[in-house]
Nucleic acid binder design. Structure first.
Lengths: 240, 240, 240, 240
DNA sequence: AATGAATGAGTGTTCATTCAT
DNA sequence: TATGAATGAACACTCATTCAT
């Protein structure tokens, strides 16, 4: 019985009530879980491993999570919420629509880079969730896509970009960002993260900019010196 | 123990020798495996389920495959080999570089559509393979990417497309095709496969065409009536 | 994988740590294992049977032992260690070299009699161990042989026995003791354990005693009334 | 069904009738079985391995033997029959009772040496037989023991040896011979086979010889030059 | 007579989950 | 709250045995 029967999807309750402790413990356990799930996958990670990594007992885990599936659900939510939280943070103060779009893509890629394994985890393991919970994750993804969607729409509505199939293009943006994690083995050593992004923008943003948009972009570049430089050494991929 | 990189059963004792039968049985079992792995994932599919689905006994599976990992490896290879085989088939007789590129993307998407679940499987389960076998799958993927790469290069070298970061654009094409499977829940009911492709081409091919390339494209369209129509009913996604 | 030479479970995850409990459980399980292995042999004994006999669950066994091979190894060690422990106990306080030798053989036989099935087990199943572990058992056997060797050497060096091929004679003693278990079907009902031993001493000790040794022996007999009597009813085997 | 139900213990019938072929095939399969059982033990040897070693198909084995247990039974019989056949052969023409006894022990050891692994097999695997068949093997062993028993009795009755516990001494002889196989790891490199035997005779025969027996022995030695020399290089074990 | 592909019951082992302390 | 020993259902894999050819 216990937690299982009561928990409605997404509303996973724990047996512990002190809400501060709850958050702390859950975070502690989820960080361990995300790390291990990312490295080894869901099925090959055992509860005992998570307990050890988190520095708690096996039994404790079941006081904060209903079952293993629950841990996965919340692990994936944790990752997706990071996107939703961090992208807006990086957009703060950025006014120009084109700049906002580019910055959003850049920010997305930066987070993907930081959470590379966790991003792969989301692709691998969403289907390991029970069906009802899977859609919760989909909703979460739709929400984070909306961030890019809004930036793109603003650009088009402001006349900075020509009319395109927004819906599809947003997904291209999303796939582009995810690809940095999914196909990292193919890019690693050929492109630095910032090269990846700036080259990507040339393919997925620039071609759709109107004259007005292009003007804005060049002003932007003159002022901001493009993107922050990343440390990683890299061999520039040949354009030709 | 199991035989290292390849597909042979580890159990040396009762190997089946009739090579015609081998192909037949392996195909029979792999088809069942791909289906189940695709639907339920690798770890949640049991050997007993595969056996039942394939209409053979549990023991028989071990006369044609070394272990479960082996079945996964060959399942994934089967899917990837389909790409490598079928794309060239559809390109036969297509001469014009731009047309070849478009056709390659179209063909890739068509196969992804047909093998939608299997394509998702490849994303989910490649990491479930033992490390040494994983790289075999990566090689296979690189080989099928090359098909698109060649089409793209020919377009650029022929002056039909302007110079772009080929390496990145090819991956964008690949992600575009895979996205039809990976994000199908987002496209299903909004775009038919052929709409998906033709809209995609507008985003990922057209912007880079030179005047010469555009001319070719419009000629092509006039002659071929765009792409074959697919049966699936669909609500057209609003571009605006 | 399993830990190499020693006794620890290969499954590192859920190790039991309370050392008192460990001893208790291991003993509990090993007693069951020795009993079943002895009765039915290693391969025909299942883990489930051991669990049932020990009154624990199947899973618990794997928290105290790495694998089935591990259980066998420790079962055999348990038996051999009994020899090493108990023979010296029975020799305590026995001073005269000839008496010590006879007592050692008697004690050895007594233990073999008590652990009859386990002794047979050692013969049957040592070869079922993995090669690296097999030599651990051989070492253990050499150690217990040394007990007899020491007694014999002291007799010879003290002039109680004439010079003989010690090495070979010790093995005759060992085989004699083991034979009580190995060939029990041939002795059962013909000889009681103590008759077996006293008749054996006439064949394997007395003939090599010097005059000095014989004198000692007869004194001994007069004082101690030969060996303790065993309860088992027996039909005296005809010497003639 | 089939062979199983009909075959009474020891009377294992096969489905094939041409008796010459039967003997040939059975021999072929049994030789393979003895080899593999000896090397790897009964349970770890598979029917498929026996088939491959014998150069026949799996199915064929079941036309000559009822089941795996059957193969073991006949394998063990084959080994024991070798004893019964070969010892008398080597005694032919040997007249003197003491010489006959020594020769019998020597012959027994020589066969054990040749069938070392098979002898160990008999110890390990007799208990793997079904109970009813086990006693068949015991009978066989009793029969071969009788050979030594007869030699010993004749010595005693002829006044060449003093009265001893015949029954026990015969078993000591048997154990001595078997020990060459069972404890070979302890003797190998320390004693050659003939040294083993001649040293053994000093411990197990000479002490019981009467003056008449000793005289006979010394005559014998003068004439025959002790035993045949064996090729194996050996480090003589120190008597002292 | 001979084959070897096919079977499936049976085994060792794992691991999510529980619960007494 | 927190622990971790205990459970046992579930799974991958093996191999003696059968039987169509």
């Amino acid at each position: 019985m216990g937690v299982k029967g009561m928990s409605s999807p997404g509303q996973v309750d724990s047996l512990v009530t002190d809400s501060k402790l709850i958050e702390e413990r859950r975070g502690q356990i989820l960080r361990a879980a995300v790390k291990l799930f990312s490295q080894q996958g869901y099925y090959t990670t055992t509860i005992a491993q998570i307990a050890r990594e988190a520095g708690v007992s096996i039994g404790l885990i079941y006081q904060y999570f209903g079952d293993k599936d629950d841990i996965l659900l919340l692990s994936l939510k944790l990752v997706l919420e990071t996107y939703e939280h961090e992208i807006p943070l990086r957009l703060e103060g950025v006014k120009h629509p084109v700049e906002r779009l580019c910055m959003a893509i850049w920010a997305y890629c930066a987070i993907v880079d930081r959470l590379r394994e966790a991003t792969v985890l989301a692709y691998r393991s969403t289907n390991s969730l029970r069906a009802d919970r899977r859609s919760l994750i989909k909703d979460e993804e739709i929400r984070s896509n909306r961030l890019l969607e809004d930036c793109l729409r603003t650009c088009i509505e402001g006349g900075y970009m020509r009319e395109v199939n927004q819906y599809l293009l947003v997904y291209q943006y999303v796939m582009f960002c995810h690809a940095w994690a999914l196909k990292n083995w193919a890019f690693q050593g050929k492109l630095s993260p910032s090269e990846y992004v700036s080259e990507g923008l040339k393919l997925l943003v620039e071609p759709f900019l109107t004259a007005k948009g292009k003007a804005a972009l060049s002003t932007m570049r003159r002022n901001t010196g493009n993107f922050k430089h990343d440390k990683r050494p890299t061999a520039r991929a040949k354009t030709k």
